[in-house]
Amino acid sequence: MTSRVRQFVPSAQVVRYLLVGVGNTLFGYGCFSLFTWLFVRMAPAHPGLAASAATVVAGVTNITVSFLGYKLFVFRSKDRFLPEYLRSFLVYLPTMAFSAVAIAPLTAFLRNVMPPQQQRAPYLAGALLTVLTVFASFLGHKYFSFRKRTDAVE
């Protein structure tokens, strides 16, 4: 392949990231939706707070599943499990915290904007916040969770 053509072809790592990312996003949004559905039924007067709780509960499960996919398939890291898991958790923690705080007012806003579809507001808010997480997580994983160590002494 010529160098001119190669600049338009994504690297194998980017393709693997996209494949795992699609699976993680579907799994993560599915977990979020399930927990939102359960929590809204327990507190129907507070769908924003239910969605916020669902974000946190689903987030811990999703972090573990995504970590395994990224470690084993995308970045193919051979480094120690626990330090990478903790770094991966740290990558997701800011977006999970932001989403947990932002989803309640975003849900309230969407309920006001689309009154006939109020019951869908927490799910739409979760989907919008998922887009932010996808972009932030790639950068965090590439440059923090699974960064390549350079030898101190060559």
Rank of each mutant, 00 (worst) to 15 (best):
A53T: 09
V56T: 10
F39E: 05
L128I: 14
V153G: 02
P10R: 09
V15N: 00
Q7S: 13
L93F: 14
F109D: 00
S145F: 09
A125F: 08
F35E: 04
A43G: 03
Q7M: 14
E154L: 13
T150F: 12
T64E: 05
F138L: 05
M114Q: 05
S137M: 00
L34I: 11
Q13W: 07
L18S: 11
L93Y: 12
Q13V: 12
T2G: 13
T2E: 11
L38T: 04
R16C: 09
L68W: 09
F32E: 02
R120T: 12
S3L: 14
L19P: 03
L68I: 15
F8K: 06
L132F: 09
R147C: 04
D79R: 15
L124G: 05
F135W: 09
Q117H: 15
P116N: 12
R147M: 11
V131P: 00
G126L: 08
L72P: 02
S99Y: 04
V113L: 15
A108R: 11
A54G: 09
L68H: 09
P44I: 14
L90V: 07
A125D: 01
T55S: 13
V14C: 07
G28K: 03
A53G: 12
M114K: 00
A108M: 07
F144N: 03
K78G: 13
V40C: 10
R80G: 07
F89I: 01
V9Y: 07
F109L: 14
Y29V: 14
L132Q: 07
P116M: 10
F144C: 06
M96R: 06
A152N: 06
V101K: 00
T133V: 15
T64K: 00
Y70C: 12
A152C: 00
Q119H: 14
S77D: 12
L18F: 11
V101T: 11
L26T: 13
A136P: 03
S3P: 00
G21A: 08
S137Y: 01
T61W: 12
A152Y: 02
F39P: 03
F35G: 05
F27Y: 12
I103T: 10
I63W: 04
V60S: 08
L38H: 01
D79Q: 14
